[in-house]
Design a protein around this nucleic acid. Structure first.
Length: 429
RNA sequence: GGGGAUAUGGUGAAGCGGUUAUCACAGCUCUCUGUGGCAGAGCGAUCACGAGUUCGAAUCUCGUUAUCCCCCCCA
């Protein structure tokens, strides 16, 4: 990391710059996303970074870590409490309701690729401002929607060139059957309070489900024997889950039933899933996660409307691509021609000439700031162009230009008005 | 909230008690005043910050800050 002069300004903790040399990954990923999602009928939407804090309180749940300690909030001069969005779903649902999208043909299929903000400890694959792809299908409660979303998620990772990921999946039921499960869990853990970590003692009161997610050894030990949601699902939820799995079987998406998987956000119902590497599943290795949220839209003031979706961390995708040495094409086409100019008059004429190459669809480069032929040829060499065009005082007067083949060093003087055609002709050979 | 590591020109490194703080690459300047895979010559760091130990500190000690990493949690 670059050190700083004492007075030099520095990026805010957890924020990172995406430098030019990184952009090829972003462009590559974005293209794959657009191609796949638009084929499956998803439309892109962009919503504001700032929302009212209450939106997330209602959607994400006040006891979640995200709301309890990670959300960025600010107070406006007028006294409103705003928040930088920590996740995308709440904002998309808000936009869906506010713009009357509920009258569009359902399901409404949306996606966005935007920055999210969480005040968390930065570390590998984790930033305070990070980009997520968020995909949502609103207005269709059927299992086919869940299966389609999971299938697409899996195919998207494949299209990035990533290998070795499994779908971990579970059903956490709904408002009809989950209460009985929660009661059973509470009864179960109440008898084992001594073994639970302090966090989990608290979770026992606030949100028992989260105990299942705890990584403390003793807690994990206690969880092993805990009741499973699967045994508490009512008929509708059980059937829904069963059919999702049947879809996945048919589509040959490898999945692992994880009876204790829950999610960090409170709005989920029924299907929940994550994509996790088969090996080396570290804590930051979840690339993508999501689930169904059939109550969220009501909670935010809409009509009873089902929804399902997932989010993917772009920075983590890039990290994984680098680990797996995925080849990503370079940005932009390679320049074919370098225009060397010498002196004032040629320099003035160089700009229109440069433009005529652009119009002809030929990638050209030049360095108008440099004057010596030596340094310009050096740059031309480094760029690996096929031709250097040398345009000096003499040539400017004669209305000619020198065409130099970089490989052979062979030069030829060409009439200026013919140069674009000549280069075009030689490039075809 | 807990733990570990690191901090030397733009980048990557060397130096581990006394050097004009070294090297490579990149950058910039000048020269050569029209020809490219090493042209020449220069420029650029008070060694993160602060205090202490010492005749003397980039090198030792303490503190601060920042970054990276791990746990927790998440995408």
């Amino acid at each position: 990391m670059p050190k700083l002069k004492s007075k030099q300004i520095q990026s805010v903790r957890g924020m990172h710059d995406i430098l030019p040399e990184e952009q090829k990954y972003w462009r590559y990923i974005q293209k794959k996303i657009e191609g796949l999602l638009e084929y499956y009928g998803f439309e892109r939407i962009s919503t504001p970074v700032l929302e009212s804090a209450d939106l997330f309180n209602r959607a994400v749940g006040e006891t979640s870590d995200i709301m309890a300690k990670e959300i960025y909030t600010l107070k406006t001069k007028g006294g409103d409490i705003l928040a930088l969005r920590p996740e995308a779903t709440a904002g998309l649902v808000r936009a869906y309701l506010e713009n009357g999208m509920n009258v569009r043909p359902h399901p409404v299929k949306l996606y966005c690729i935007d920055p999210m903000f969480r005040h968390d400890e930065p570390q590998a694959g984790r930033y305070r401002q990070f980009y997520q792809l968020d995909v949502e299908t609103i207005g269709d409660g059927s299992e086919a929607v869940d299966a389609e979303l999971i299938f697409m998620a899996y195919k998207l990772l494949e299209s990035f060139g990533l290998k070795g990921y499994d779908v971990h999946i579970n059903s956490i039921g709904d408002q009809n059957c989950r209460p009985a499960y929660i009661k059973a869990l509470k009864d179960y853990f109440r008898n084992r309070t001594k073994k639970l970590c302090n966090n989990c003692k608290n979770r026992l009161k606030e949100n028992v489900l989260r105990i299942l997610d705890c990584k403390e050894e003793d807690c994990k030990e206690s969880v092993k024997e805990a009741p499973q949601m699967m045994d508490f699902l009512d008929e509708a939820c059980r059937l829904h889950f069963k059919r999702v799995l049947e879809f996945l079987d048919e589509a040959e998406v490898p999945y692992i039933l994880d009876p204790y998987m829950v999610r960090g956000l409170d709005y989920y119902t029924r299907t929940v899933f994550e994509l996790i590497p088969t090996e080396n599943a570290g804590s930051q290795s979840t690339l993508l996660a999501g689930g169904r949220y059939d109550r969220l839209i009501e909670q935010l003031g809409g009509a009873k409307t089902p929804g399902s979706g997932w989010a993917m961390g772009i920075e983590r995708i890039i990290l994984a691509m680098k680990e797996q040495n995925v080849h990503v094409p370079e940005m932009g086409p390679k320049p074919k021609v370098f225009l060397v100019q010498l002196g004032e008059a040629p320099k003035r004429k160089a700009l229109p000439l440069f433009e005529s190459f652009r119009k002809a669809g030929i990638e050209a480069k030049s360095s108008l700031g440099r004057d010596s032929i030596k340094s310009q040829l050096r740059i031309a060499h480094r760029l690996g162009v096929r031709f250097a065009l040398i345009f000096g005082q003499k040539e400017a007067l004669d209305g000619t230009i020198i065409l130099r083949e970089m490989d052979t060093g062979v030069q030829e003087t060409i009439l200026l008005e013919r140069i674009v055609d000549e280069v075009k002709k030689r490039l075809k050979q």
